[in-house]
Write a protein that binds this DNA or RNA. Structure first.
Length: 588
RNA sequence: GCGGGCGUAGCUCAACUGGAUAGAGCGUCGGACUACGGAUCCGAAGGUUGAGGGUUCAAAUCCUUCCGCCCGUACCA
């Protein structure tokens, strides 16, 4: 039986409550603040209120009434708490078996799977793809992996911003500056520069002479109209430049190891959006106001949601309504999750409310994963000041930092023994781990400071530190001949042999048991950072174990048990890291 | 003005949703087994959890009044 279940069952019995109470008691079990205090703690505060007794007295009675058996080795009263210690050999055996036969993966799964679409990335064409966009991609991708591990049917969706006035600005600039020639690579960045130049020129013109500003503004609108009407010259330029961007985005995703199941385009939502407006205007769900069309949400404190401008044009919200409809009707999803910056919070509250008014019950279960900005150590990024770091330059810089560190590795086995191709692959994985961990290590509602120095620091809280766990385990396995310690009878902790008595061993083992509930929580909160913290904590526990408990020098059952513990650590780390999109390495 | 987010060690972040002495990484200082891979580990210094008031056996966490920063607040996306 699994340790936590065993504790809950034992508690239920000691309280004379029968097995059905075990689930509720299970939820009240938490790890004590320090390892030496035990592996799980039960606080007696609620019982104290109920029974009108001192919590410490209840804890004492309870500890006396509980008899340790199976995975529970020892029970102790400590003030108002009852602390439980696991029986290492048995628990490790159970865990190893579960990891081997797939039942551990089953523990990760949600009781009721659902069909869910996660929309993320949503890059704008004709604009540079930079560090800020990376947070979105990595976050969305991790959520996809997380929910799939939970057993849900996940559709990963992208939604390209390939239309609108900003695209027109870029095209306008290119048309008015025919001498500009695109580079062979980095064309998205080049187009992004054109867009920025256009914006600056328009602002400057307006400041110089408002009439001149309006004239240029009208030129841009004319490009937009030509685009909408499919005027051949503009359409050709649009198709070509748009394709450059889409190609580059896809190559970025490939480099990052991110895949989408469906791709939507803003340029395809206009007509459907307008139909939605007409339809629900006719039904009285939408109404006319000041020449525009709105959905009045003021009773919900959300003001008026504008779905059609007074000039008849549709907006971002209109397109999102059409897209949501397609998601619900054509993809038949139960839940829709949007990974979009927190500055869009009102937009999504309005979107969900409007969908509800339109009769979509499922809008209630929609979620907006709002994440904060990515900052640079010197402050806010600005594409205008050229301080936003384009994706290509970013990957290169991280890769270079990692490569330099790996080149400094001492000669001998490990990295030094790798061929060029393997080394390059290891560099790629470690670099990506640093990036992903840097982005996912902080909660979504906090800003991320992109600090290359810190993210690739050879000493510290980085993705490399997590992977180092795997490299060290692989190193031991290479010498020991695998997790079982080489050929011969399958190793397992022998019955009541005094193995894994060291606190560092118990601390690590206990931690491995918590992956399932961490994954469950990460899903409930749509927060991969919880998993990142879990893994970092695990890496620290592993390092302590590694420091204090020699494996290869140990003998007999101790050696076998430690090898088994390493095998379990490896398996748990590989699954946990995979949920963050971090691929394992054996050498680094 | 209103709505949302944030405020925890010099810096960057945690704290399992109200529980045990608020913990990590970086940086600083001092150490470690001839190292199963030192991208490691151990120790020290560093805190009135922005400020005040309240709720309770218990508050970084809940309520309340302020202060500071960021975002949003219908015809951009």
């Amino acid at each position: 039986m699994e340790f936590k279940d065993a504790v809950a069952a034992a508690l239920a019995e000691a309280l004379g409550q029968g097995p059905e109470a075990a689930a509720a008691l299970r939820a009240q079990l938490n790890p004590p603040p320090k390892v030496e205090m035990g592996d799980l703690a039960f606080g007696c505060f609620a019982l104290a209120k109920e029974r009108r007794q001192a919590p410490a007295a209840i804890a004492r009675d309870l500890a006396a009434a509980l008899r340790p058996q199976g995975p529970v080795a020892r029970v102790e009263a400590a003030g108002p708490y009852v602390n439980f210690f696991l029986a290492p050999a048995g628990v490790l055996e159970d865990l190893s078996r579960a990891l081997a036969d797939g039942s551990f993966d089953a523990r990760l799964r949600a009781p009721r799977p659902r069909r869910v679409m996660i929309e993320f990335s949503q890059p704008n064409t004709h604009k540079a793809f930079h560090v800020g966009h990376l947070r979105n991609v990595v976050l969305g991708d991790s959520l996809v992996r997380l929910l799939r591990a939970r057993g849900h049917d996940v559709v990963a969706a992208n939604y390209y911003g390939d239309f609108g006035i900003d695209v027109a600005k870029c095209l306008w600039w290119l048309r008015t500056h025919p001498a500009l020639t695109p580079p062979a690579t980095g064309r998205t960045t080049w187009l992004g520069d054109a867009y920025t130049q256009a914006t600056l020129a328009l602002e400057a013109a307006h400041a110089r002479d408002p009439d001149e500003g309006r004239r240029l503004q009208a030129e841009v609108r004319a490009v937009l109209r030509a685009l909408e009407e499919g005027e051949p010259d503009v359409a050709a330029l649009y198709r070509e430049t748009r394709q450059w961007c889409l190609d580059e985005f896809r190559s970025i995703y490939a480099d990052l190891g991110v895949a989408f199941d469906v791709e939507f385009y803003e340029s395809e939502m206009e007509a459907a959006g307008q139909r939605v407006v007409d339809e629900f205007l006719a039904r009285g769900v939408f109404e006319r106001s000041q020449g525009a069309v709105i959905c009045d949400l003021s009773d919900r404190g959300l003001g008026a949601a504008l779905v059609r401008k007074s000039d008849g044009a549709s907006l971002y919200l209109t397109w999102d309504l059409a897209l949501a409809r397609e998601k619900f009707d054509r993809y038949d999803i139960e839940q829709s999750i949007y990974v979009v910056g927190s500055e869009q919070t009102l937009h999504f509250r309005q979107l969900f409310a409007v969908l509800e008014r339109m009769g979509y019950e499922r809008a209630r279960d929609c979620r907006h994963v709002a994440y904060e900005l990515v900052m640079l150590p010197e402050g806010k990024m600005s594409s205008r000041r050229g301080t936003a770091i384009p994706m290509a330059r970013l990957s290169e810089a991280v890769r270079a930092a990692v490569a330099a560190r790996m080149a400094a590795a001492p000669p001998g086995e490990g990295v030094a023994a790798l061929g060029a191709a393997d080394r390059a692959e290891a560099e790629r994985r470690v670099a990506l781990a640093c990036l992903r961990y840097g982005m996912l290590g902080v909660g979504t509602n906090r800003r991320v400071v992109f600090d290359l120095e810190e993210w690739t620091n050879p000493e510290g809280d980085t993705g490399a530190y997590l992977l180092y766990v795997l490299a060290r385990i692989a190193g031991i396995f290479r010498k020991a001949g695998g997790p079982a310690g080489g050929p011969g009878p399958a190793a397992g902790p022998a019955g009541d042999a005094p193995v894994l008595v060291h606190e560092a061993e118990r601390a690590l083992l206990n931690h491995l048991l918590h992956l399932p509930e961490t994954v469950a929580r990460a899903e409930a909160e749509l927060e991969p950072a919880l998993l990142a913290h879990y893994l970092f904590d695990g890496a620290q526990r592993f390092s302590r174990f590694y420091q204090e408990c020699p494996v290869l020098k140990a003998e007999g059952p101790v050696r076998r048990a430690r090898l088994l513990l390493l095998g379990a650590t490896q398996a748990v780390f590989e699954s946990g890291l995979a949920l963050l999109g971090i691929e394992p390495v054996r050498e680094m």
